[in-house]
Amino acid sequence: MSTNAGASNGAGSWTPHALAAVAWLAGLSDEEFELQVRQVASSLNLPVLSLRNAVKARRKRDSAEHANYEAAERARSRSSAEDDSTDSPDDRGRVGLFVDGADLPTTAMEVGKVLADVPNLFVRDGPVRVDWDVALNGFVAEPLTVAGVVNGVHDLRRPWHYRKSRSGKLTRAYTTLPDRAAVLYLDRASGSGLRPLNGIASSPLLHEDGTMRVTEGYDPATRLWCQRVPEIVVPARPTQDDAARAFLMLRHHFRTFAFADAFLRTEQGQSFPVVDTGRPPGDEPSRVCRRPMSLSQAATAISCWRA
């Protein structure tokens, strides 16, 4: 065996036993390699420098082969992931979602596309989920968690990745969406594709032009989630008398608010003063009792109380 040839060209004329030793050394960590290289060189009757050069060449070759393998796998997997038409739905109607372990940010973007159409997911200082709270007997907006992302994706899609079999062939295998992909998705709050949520409302929505909207669920114009909004009946063109009666009822409803600039009186049987609604109002600094309330606002408020 020519050690000079082995040292100069990596492994061109080495024995199978020496080549196996080089492959084994190439797979060790740097610390383990330093502990073993001199002993292996002595057992093979090789110069240490020759063995080091051979291992270095083997690692370089293995690294290049691994990079080529990863590139080919990524190209093949992306091609398969883009062609969902070939992915037959399962018994729950879910098609596949490719999980690229080498590029989880891209997987997180695909998660965003999947969840963007979920009707109760929104953005409010980060992704949130609107759910029914039994204790409160109403809807609440809660921050979307990592587990919530994973559950939401699996409700709609079936994540999969490529797995290398013993024969070296790449095969599809179903998997659970990695938590890291969910974390990356949650970090992309502004680019999640979800609709914005300003809050939850239980009253008719008043627009700038004075029109009113009664709806259930999400209202895109106000970005509010509406629940249990009462039906209202108001005149198409309220008169001044309608507004005056509505305003009087508003003042009566809030008469126990002891505004500093209001005329007060003490009603019979009560020990605390209330606003004297028989006298003109002061500023009464409350949006619902302030004089500039529009006709439609007053009529809407009065209809809500009647309901």
Score class of each variant (00 low, 15 high):
residue 53 N to W: 00
residue 292 P to R: 12
residue 93 G to D: 05
residue 281 P to I: 04
residue 120 N to R: 14
residue 286 S to L: 14
residue 299 A to P: 01
residue 213 R to T: 09
residue 26 A to E: 02
residue 11 A to M: 03
residue 135 A to T: 03
residue 6 G to F: 00
residue 254 F to G: 06
residue 102 A to Y: 14
residue 279 R to K: 09
residue 34 E to H: 03
residue 3 T to N: 03
residue 306 R to G: 08
residue 139 F to C: 06
residue 185 Y to H: 02
residue 176 T to S: 11
residue 62 D to A: 08
residue 66 H to I: 12
residue 279 R to P: 06
residue 255 R to F: 14
residue 77 S to L: 11
residue 238 P to I: 15
residue 263 F to W: 14
residue 240 Q to R: 15
residue 45 N to T: 08
residue 205 L to C: 04
residue 224 L to D: 11
residue 159 P to I: 01
residue 106 T to Y: 10
residue 237 R to A: 07
residue 20 A to Y: 03
residue 164 K to L: 14
residue 125 D to P: 00
residue 14 W to N: 03
residue 234 V to L: 11
residue 227 Q to V: 00
residue 19 L to H: 02
residue 197 L to N: 00
residue 154 H to G: 04
residue 180 R to M: 07
residue 86 T to E: 05
residue 87 D to C: 10
residue 299 A to Q: 09
residue 11 A to T: 03
residue 173 A to C: 05
residue 194 L to G: 08
residue 101 G to Y: 12
residue 241 D to R: 14
residue 84 D to H: 00
residue 74 R to V: 08
residue 21 A to S: 05
residue 45 N to Y: 10
residue 117 D to N: 11
residue 143 P to V: 14
residue 117 D to Q: 12
residue 239 T to M: 12
residue 144 L to C: 02
residue 260 A to T: 11
residue 101 G to S: 09
residue 116 A to Y: 07
residue 272 F to P: 10
residue 97 L to S: 05
residue 232 I to V: 12
residue 242 D to S: 14
residue 98 F to A: 02
residue 189 A to P: 02
residue 71 A to E: 15
residue 226 C to Y: 00
residue 194 L to P: 01
residue 250 L to F: 05
residue 82 E to D: 06
residue 133 D to N: 14
residue 207 H to Q: 10
residue 184 L to Q: 09
residue 17 H to A: 10
residue 246 A to K: 13
residue 123 V to G: 11
residue 284 E to K: 12
residue 25 L to A: 02
residue 38 R to F: 13
residue 196 P to Q: 12
residue 288 V to L: 13
residue 125 D to R: 04
residue 159 P to R: 00
residue 229 V to I: 06
residue 220 P to V: 13
residue 52 R to M: 01
residue 208 E to V: 07
residue 273 P to Y: 08
residue 72 A to M: 05
residue 251 R to A: 13
residue 210 G to L: 07
residue 185 Y to L: 07
residue 203 S to C: 01
residue 191 G to D: 11
residue 230 P to I: 14
residue 30 D to A: 11
residue 91 D to T: 06
residue 161 H to F: 07
residue 153 V to C: 03
residue 145 T to F: 01
residue 12 G to R: 10
residue 204 P to D: 09
residue 77 S to Y: 12
residue 271 S to P: 11
residue 278 G to C: 05
residue 64 A to E: 05
residue 267 E to F: 03
residue 302 I to K: 13
residue 189 A to W: 14
residue 3 T to I: 02
residue 30 D to F: 05
residue 123 V to A: 07
residue 231 E to C: 07
residue 241 D to G: 04
residue 169 K to Y: 07
residue 223 R to N: 01
residue 143 P to G: 05
residue 120 N to P: 00
residue 205 L to H: 15
residue 49 L to G: 13
residue 150 V to E: 08
residue 161 H to W: 07
residue 22 V to G: 04
residue 73 E to N: 12
residue 101 G to V: 11
residue 191 G to T: 15
residue 156 L to R: 07
